[in-house]
Design a protein around this nucleic acid. Sequence first.
DNA 1: TGTGTATGAATGAAGG
DNA 2: CCTTCATTCATACACA
Lengths: 180, 180
Amino acid sequence: MEEGMSGFYVKAAGVRGGHGGGDGGSGGTKCGRWNPTTEQVKVLTDLFRSGLRTPSTDQIQKISTQLSFYGKIESKNAFYWFQNHKARERQKRRKVSVDDQTKEALRSEEKISSAKHFIPHHVVESERVMETLQLFPLKSFDELAEPEKLRLRATECRDFAHGFGTTMDHPTLDLRLSFL
Amino acid sequence: MEEGMSGFYVKAAGVRGGHGGGDGGSGGTKCGRWNPTTEQVKVLTDLFRSGLRTPSTDQIQKISTQLSFYGKIESKNAFYWFQNHKARERQKRRKVSVDDQTKEALRSEEKISSAKHFIPHHVVESERVMETLQLFPLKSFDELAEPEKLRLRATECRDFAHGFGTTMDHPTLDLRLSFL
DNA sequence: TGTGTATGAATGAAGG
DNA sequence: CCTTCATTCATACACA
């Protein structure tokens, strides 16, 4: 059971890709990234190998406290470490399997054994849905609030192309909020 | 950057760092995931700062309609944005407080020998934001705390100048995992 | 000394 | 709402 849980924290960085424009990473303080010491990595790895995959908030806290003895660290670092490690482990797994038996995989339509999230649950199935428009919403659409409804199959790609695209400044920043 | 591929690569100028690097090349349009433009983020952030935490379906619709002017967006994107933003804000809060505690805990390492609940679970809590206000404040809180600029001061560079350094090597690797 | 790779950090999207 | 997954951005580091 993968439950457990983990609380985390995000530092809020805002501007994400900066290389292209403007502020870009420039910037001043570049000490934004935690650099684990070998001891820290070892402990984390040990824990991971011991089976710890998604430590709870408590555990994260304890772990980081312990690790702080070897060097600077914040709870979120430990959290991210586990998230990334697990994800990458899996990513590699998937990649390898794909790489290994991709072509042959076709043998069986679907035998994904132990992986439950390898399979695209809700998979696409879309594309075709538009066949029959929903002429009658069953529920006036205003009632629902969850993505269950908002999640229209219409989620096609049709993106960009908003003619203007280029920074049109901010049209009406002042009255932006007035539409509500 | 990646001008190697087709000449298209629409980058909507001001768009947040064009992470999209990947979009180019294969398959052309990469529509896996919504990538908010800076304007969109700004508006959303403004709304959030204005106190809007859980917009109703109505609001979601209106918001996304407005945001669509700045770029592609679907209702569910706005919906998720608020969900995530709210959750992460909270988690960050929680973590930070714990992080604070971490240092405390370290300092009083001796006294914790017999005290088991030195570990804080008292999350900050209480902040009572308006759940669904009538919003059109436009600027109530002014500059609340711009996450983009307000970097946490706690995280400094990795200067971990732990005195021992060489001498300590791996102190007590054996009992490291006992704390869990 | 520039390029590739490993990994920290962030966040969109879901599931439960 | 809370937790988790996936994907991507950004950067430290290794390599030739």
